[in-house]
């Protein structure tokens, strides 16, 4: 009756990703957080409970954006204006307090988080936007390589065909999408 419905597991994911990647990612901000959580949920099957829709910069969860703000307000993470108009996320003084409320969930999914960091942790926001959008597209529909590339470039004309082909090959090589027809495995 009086138990809390605060989503500590979700907050724990936000803090854990920050802990693991704040010094590894070339620009760990809100966009990178959005894409990593999307990939963690979609590819690695961690039940984060976030649902992403397609937004200006690729897969995006409004709820995750709110939760990032909530965790920042309780000083589990700190968000500051970084380079250009982006934001930079780092751990803040209460991060252990937040983590302590989600230890079990994080421990259960630690291996999957390790894999996410290994496979995607070094990408910047633009690279993650491209890869997560390709995953998003192939999740709901199977494509030929040409059609997937065309669809991606229609949505995001600032990516070159070469970049898109390279990312598709990489996702196939890593086993995240199947070969023709291209669809999520």
């Amino acid at each position: 009756m009086f138990s809390s419905d605060i989503p500590w597991e979700k907050y724990g994911v936000i803090v854990e990703l920050t802990r693991r990647i704040q010094d590894q990612s070339p620009q760990f901000g809100k966009t990178v957080m959005q894409k990593l959580v999307y990939l963690l949920t979609t590819i690695y099957g961690v039940p984060t409970g976030y649902e992403h829709t397609l937004y200006t910069y690729g897969p995006y969860s409004e709820e995750l954006a709110s939760d990032v703000a909530n965790v920042a307000a309780m000083e589990g993470i700190e968000i500051s204006h970084g380079v250009k108009n982006g934001f930079e996320i780092k751990l803040a003084k209460n991060h252990d307090w937040v983590s302590g409320k989600s230890t079990k969930f994080i421990n259960e999914n630690r291996t999957k988080i390790d894999s996410l960091i290994r496979d995607f942790g070094s990408f910047n926001a633009r690279e993650l936007e491209l890869r997560s959008t390709l995953i998003f597209l192939t999740k709901s529909e199977a494509f030929s390589r040409e059609k997937l590339t065309k669809q991606l470039i229609e949505l995001k004309p600032y990516f070159t065909e070469k970049e898109v082909y390279f990312a598709i090959d990489e996702l196939i090589d890593k086993g995240f999408i199947g070969k023709e027809p291209l669809c999520i495995l």
């Binding site: 009756m1 009086f2 138990s3 809390s4 419905d5 605060i6 901000g29 809100k30 966009t31 959005q34 937004y55 200006t56 910069y57 995006y60 409004e62 954006a65 709110s66 990032v68 703000a69 909530n70 968000i79 934001f87």
Partner: peptide, 18 residues
């Protein structure tokens, strides 16, 4: 004691992508 706990949460302006 009977009753319930309520959490009122809203990020009424989101910085970043939105």
């Amino acid at each position: 004691i009977p009753g319930f706990r309520d959490s009122a949460r809203s990020s009424w302006y989101k910085l970043g992508n939105e």
